[in-house]
Nucleic acid binder design. Structure first.
Lengths: 336, 336
DNA sequence: CTGAAAGCGCTTACAG
DNA sequence: CTGAAAGCGCTTACAG
C-alpha cells in the first residue's frame, strides 16, 4: 500500500510537503513541487480518501439524491440523462458520485448517510416532491446542496432549472397562433414545481389571449405514458381542439388514446409535448415539443455545487437554462 | 459532533465496548450491550464512515460501475431498473451505492477511484463489453466484485445473469411451432455476452429443427430502437416470415420499419422481443417477448456481493435468474 | 467480558 | 518555504 510517507521518502521531503503538493498549497518551492509531482506520477500514487476525509473533512464525493416518492421515476428518460450529466461533470472535475434513490421507508437512514457520515462534500436533490419529508431535514443540515428545479418559496436555496412557465406559455401561444382555441392541458403532478410551473404557463397564455380557463380542460397526471392515456379519456368528451402535455411521455400516451378513439393528430386534435425526448421526433406524427437540456442540467448542477463547496459562504445560485420550442407535425402551422 | 467517546461516556463504558456493540461483536455482556444500544438510539448516533474505513477497512459502500462504451445505455429502460434493484437491496442491507458511469477517457481515474481509494468494499460491473479495457485491471484488483452477465471464459468470476441462450432458443422455437420457417434475427452487440448468448439461442433452435442458418438473416444491432429500424431495412429484401429481436427497444424500431414498409405484424411478419419492457404490452400489436427480471437482477447482484464481502474467500457465485416467454399478439399462435 | 493503547493515512496549525 | 507533531474518529490486537 502506497502512502504519503513513501512518496516523502522517495522525494526526500516530509509528509507535510507531499500533502501540500497534492492539495495545491502555494507554499511549496517550485523545484520541490516538481520533484514530488514526478514521484507521484511515476508510481501512480493516490491518496487514501478515508484518511483525507478524516483529517481534512473533504472527500471530493458528491451525493445525488433522488426521492423515490415519484412513481414514474425510471420509466421516463429524464433521470438517466440527468445522472449522465452529473456523472460527466464529476469525471471532468475529478469528483465521484454517490447515489441515493431515497425510498420513503428508509428516510432516516438516507438522512444519516447523506448528512452525518461525512462521506460527501455536498449533494444534489433531483425532482423534489415539494412537500417531501426528506427535504426539510436535508436542507437543515450544514452541507452545501443544490436543487434540480427551483424551490417554490425559499429564495436562499440554490437551484438549476429551466423556465418552465415561459416555455409552457410559449408552447400554448404557438397553438393559439395556429388557430386552436379550445386547448386542454395534461398537467404534470401538482406536488412538483415543474408540474406547477408548466400549468401556470398554460394559464398565462390563455390569459394573454383573453380566453377563459376551463377547469375541466385541465387534467393532472404523473409523467407517464399511462397517465397520459387515462387523462385523454377524461378530456375527449369535452372535445378539445388541442392538448398541451407536461411531458413527452404523457404525450405518447395521449397520442395512443386519441388514435384508439378513432381520431387523428393533428387533423382532429393538435398535440404538444415537453422535453424533446429521443422518441419525440420518431412518433407518428412527429411531436411538436419543448426541448429542455436535461444532461446539461445535470452537468451544471454538479459544476455549480462543486463551486459552492470550494467557495463556502458564497451567495445562493439560481440558474435557468434555455429551452426551445421544436415544431414538428403534431399540430398544424400558424394561420393568418 | 457526536463520537464514540461521547457514547462511551454516557453509557459508562469504554470506547472499545461501544465499538464492539456497533459492530455486533459477541464479546459484550447483554446488559452492557443493551445500555449502549439505548444511548445510541436515544441520541441517534452514527459512526463516522471515514474513520471506520481508515481503522477497519470497511465502509459499507458498494461501487456500481457502468462502462459507457455502450451507446444505448440510457435510452433503454434496462439500466434504470438495474440501478433501482441495486439501490433497493442496499437500502435493505444498510449499504450505500457509489456510481461510476465509466467514460473511456477517464479510465485511469475510474480505476484508481474504484480500486485504490479504499472507499468501497466491493463493486458490481454492469453490462460489460467483453473486451472493455477497464475489465482486466478491475478484475486484477483485490476487491470483491460481481458481474451482471456471465464472463465468457473465466469460470472463477462471480456473476448474476439470466439464461439468455435457452430463453432465446425457446422464443425462436415458439415461432417455429407457430409455423414460421424463414426466421431472421436482429442480434444484440456481439461484444456483449448477452448479445452473443441470445444469438446462439436463435441458432440452437434452428439446429433443433434441422433448419439451415442463413447468415444473411442475422443482422447485428445495438440495443436501440434506431438500430432495430435500420436492421429491418437490411432484412426486408430477404422476405423473412418472422424476426426474433434481442431486445424490446430493437423490436420497437423493427415494428416501425415494418409498418413504414406497408407491411403488418403479425399478418406479414411475426415479431418477438426480449425484456418485457414496460412498453411491450402497449405496442400495437402487443409484443410477444421474453420477460427477464431486471430489477431483481440488480437486487441479487448487490445481495450476493455483500455476502461475498462478508464471507471472504468463499467460492465464486454463479446465479441464473429465470425468464418467461410472454405470448402476445405480435406473432400468430402455434398451428397443428 | 472489558479497557488502555496503538495505529489506520492523511491535514494543518505551529514554529522556525 | 519546510518539518515535527497533534489530531481526525474509529477498530482491534493485547492484557487482564
Amino acid at each position: 500500500m502506497l502512502t504519503l510517507e513513501k512518496i516523502a521518502q522517495l522525494a526526500q521531503v516530509s509528509r507535510s510537503t507531499v500533502s501540500r503538493v497534492i492539495n495545491d498549497d502555494p507554499n511549496v518551492n517550485d523545484k520541490t513541487r516538481l520533484r514530488v509531482q514526478q514521484v507521484i506520477e511515476q508510481i501512480n500514487f493516490q491518496p487514501n480518501t478515508a484518511a483525507r476525509s478524516l483529517a481534512g473533512g473533504r472527500t471530493r464525493i458528491l451525493g445525488f439524491v433522488i426521492p423515490m416518492g415519484v412513481s414514474a421515476l425510471f420509466s421516463d428518460p429524464y433521470f438517466p440523462l440527468l445522472i449522465q450529466g452529473v456523472s460527466s461533470a464529476c469525471n471532468t472535475l475529478d469528483y465521484s458520485v454517490m447515489l441515493w434513490l431515497a425510498e420513503p421507508e428508509y428516510e432516516r437512514r438516507t438522512l444519516r448517510q447523506v448528512l452525518h457520515n461525512r462521506i460527501i462534500d455536498g449533494f444534489i436533490i433531483a425532482s423534489m416532491i415539494m412537500d417531501d419529508p426528506l427535504l426539510k431535514p436535508l436542507m437543515e443540515g450544514n452541507l452545501p446542496y443544490i436543487l434540480i428545479g427551483r424551490h417554490p418559496t425559499n429564495p436562499d436555496v440554490s437551484y438549476v432549472d429551466v423556465d418552465n412557465q415561459n416555455a409552457a406559455r410559449d408552447a400554448v401561444s404557438y397553438l393559439l397562433r395556429s388557430g386552436y382555441r379550445r386547448i386542454a392541458t395534461i398537467a404534470g403532478p401538482q406536488n412538483m414545481i415543474g408540474g406547477v410551473d408548466r400549468l401556470e404557463g398554460y394559464r398565462a397564455a390563455l390569459r394573454q389571449w383573453n380566453l377563459p380557463c376551463e377547469d375541466a380542460l385541465i387534467v393532472e397526471s404523473d409523467f407517464t405514458e399511462d397517465g397520459g392515456y387515462q387523462a385523454v379519456q377524461k378530456l375527449l368528451p369535452l372535445q378539445p381542439e388541442a392538448i398541451f402535455t407536461a411531458s413527452d411521455s404523457i404525450a405518447l400516451g395521449a397520442l395512443r388514446a386519441i388514435k384508439d378513439a378513432g381520431l387523428s393528430v393533428p387533423e382532429d386534435i393538435g398535440l404538444v409535448g415537453f422535453d424533446d425526448s429521443s422518441f419525440a421526433a420518431r412518433m407518428t406524427p412527429p411531436l411538436t415539443t419543448v426541448r429542455q437540456p436535461i444532461t446539461k442540467t445535470g452537468m451544471v448542477a454538479a459544476e455549480t455545487l462543486i463551486d459552492m463547496i470550494e467557495h463556502p459562504g458564497s451567495a445562493p445560485r439560481r440558474l435557468i437554462l434555455p429551452t426551445e420550442l421544436v415544431i414538428r407535425g403534431s399540430c398544424s402551422s400558424p394561420r393568418k
